[in-house]
Design a binder for these strands. Structure first.
Lengths: 211, 211
DNA sequence: TCGATAACGAGACGAATGGTCTCGCCGGGG
DNA sequence: CCCCGGCGAGACCATTCGTCTCGTTATCGA
């Protein structure tokens, strides 16, 4: 019948959106900028996406972080690894992105839904799989509610990200896990120290930028 | 020298802002609306406050929720009471307010600072006092890091409020507390069932609108 | 082949809204 | 008493999302 959709244009829109968002932050990027950078008319953007936020969500959801090749058999170690990765992401430029995405979501139910389903749910499912494996292998309590456990493990990191009262360091992730672990584990005890001779610290150690 | 500042006008601004925010939400309220409702010129608002968000923050920070007359001696019960109150607030109209306030804070460091210092810190200090009392009375581990514990207890509620993947029910608050408690308590065991014969449930019970 | 149709780039436009500026008025302190 | 500055009212500016228009162009179907 008529002219078909220009996939290359859509590609350029997403690429430009991604670049601009990384450079300026999602709040500062305007639709006109994206259109100009992509060499596309604004109407083309609004023909394919319902809103600016949706474009940005699309551009960002392509940034799939690769699942690590393999997680340790120890559930404790596996969760620690995953939590550290989340903490690292939150502390990076992507953390700012996520903050603003959540912010935009608050006033826009459709965007909030997209965020939950396309970003949040994916990562949560991976973390859930780790816990479910831990239950199956007897490392975690058999009656553990995975949703609750995930909120308890990752909620503190999100809180720090969004309120900013404390940094989202890997050390914080470690401390949260150690604090919560007795309520998750089958026996209720911390596992044997992973690295030879190094006991996990309970109290906050000397302030450190890393951890 | 000249005319003095009209305190009554400022009062009307805050009252109008509070009413409008409660009625429409902080995002939907415009400065022109506040000015019109208060019967003041916009310039009068901007003479006293640096931004719309600042006005709304001022109006809301006056909504101090009264501290309960007395908390139970049992730290477990005291924390549970406080968590339930937070969950109830999050589930109410005020929860929506807080969500949008956090959202606005993400792109505005000054506002974020105000939010942390004038809203977040107050409530956190009260919750911290409960935990510190628990440490002092030997109900909580003496080496407990209060900041971490607060994040672990309240982070899940904040996460649910801001991401919306699950409701912020009082039941959720209870389950979080029970899940985390073994890592906080001195002995690591749940306290004797508070209500006679009713054991705190670990698994999520039948879905309920209430707690 | 060729025409109808819809997508395209470019950009004007409308609307909402945060924040500034102007204007005439008015009131209290020096 | 009188001038300086706060006051109410509102015009104005700037930004930016999203829509609409226009002439062009590519593709599908006849």
């Amino acid at each position: 019948m008529a002219r078909t959709r220009d996939e290359a244009a859509a590609r350029r829109v997403l690429d430009s959106a991604r670049d601009l968002v990384r450079r300026l932050g999602p709040r500062a990027v305007t639709v006109d900028e994206i259109a100009a950078a992509a060499g596309v008319g604004k109407q083309t953007i609004y023909r394919w996406w319902p809103s600016k936020s949706s474009v940005i969500m699309d551009a960002l959801s392509e940034l799939t972080d690769p699942e690590p090749a393999q997680l340790p058999d120890s559930t404790f170690e596996a969760v620690r690894l995953q939590m550290r990765r989340v903490a690292a992401m939150f502390a990076s430029r992507n953390g700012e992105l996520i903050r603003e995405l959540v912010a935009d979501s608050q006033g826009d139910p459709a965007l909030a839904k997209e965020f939950r389903e396309r970003f949040f749910a994916h990562r949560r499912a991976r973390a859930a799989a780790t816990l479910e494996n831990g239950i199956a292998t007897g490392q975690l309590r058999p009656d553990l509610d995975v949703d609750d456990a995930l909120d308890v493990l990752y909620g503190p990191l999100w809180l720090r990200l969004l309120v900013g009262h404390l940094p989202t360091s890997q050390a914080a992730a470690d401390r949260v896990l150690e604090l919560v672990w007795p309520g998750l584990a089958r026996g209720g005890a911390l596992p044997a120290p992973p690295s030879p001779g190094r006991k996990p610290s309970r109290r906050r150690p000397a302030p450190s930028r890393f951890g």
